[in-house]
Simulated assay, not measured.
Amino acid sequence: MKDLIFDNFQNAVDESLLRHKSILDIITKLQESEGRINRAVAKSVTNCGCIRVDAKKQELPKEDDDIEQLSNALKTHIEGKLCDSCREVIEHEIGNNLFYLTSLCNALDLNLYDIFIKEYDKINTLGRYTLR
Rank of each mutant, 00 (worst) to 15 (best):
L126H: 10
H77A: 11
M1E: 14
K21D: 02
L98I: 05
K43S: 15
N8F: 06
F116P: 06
I117R: 00
V13M: 02
K62G: 04
L60N: 09
G35V: 06
E32M: 04
D14A: 11
Q69W: 03
I67P: 08
R19C: 06
K75F: 09
G80I: 14
F9T: 12
C86G: 05
K29R: 06
D14G: 10
H20W: 14
Q69H: 02
G49H: 04
T130N: 02
I123R: 02
D84F: 10
R36G: 09
D114Q: 07
L24Y: 14
D7L: 03
K118H: 06
Y129A: 07
S85D: 15
D66N: 12
N97Q: 01
I94V: 15
N96K: 02
S85T: 08
K29H: 15
V41H: 04
K81R: 10
T28S: 13
D121T: 13
H92Q: 08
D66L: 01
R52F: 06
V89D: 03
T102W: 00
I23S: 07
I5A: 08
L18C: 13
I23H: 02
I90K: 05
C48H: 02
C50I: 13
T102V: 05
I27L: 07
T130I: 13
C50S: 04
Y100R: 08
I27W: 11
I26C: 00
K122Y: 08
S16A: 09
Y120I: 09
F116E: 01
I37T: 03
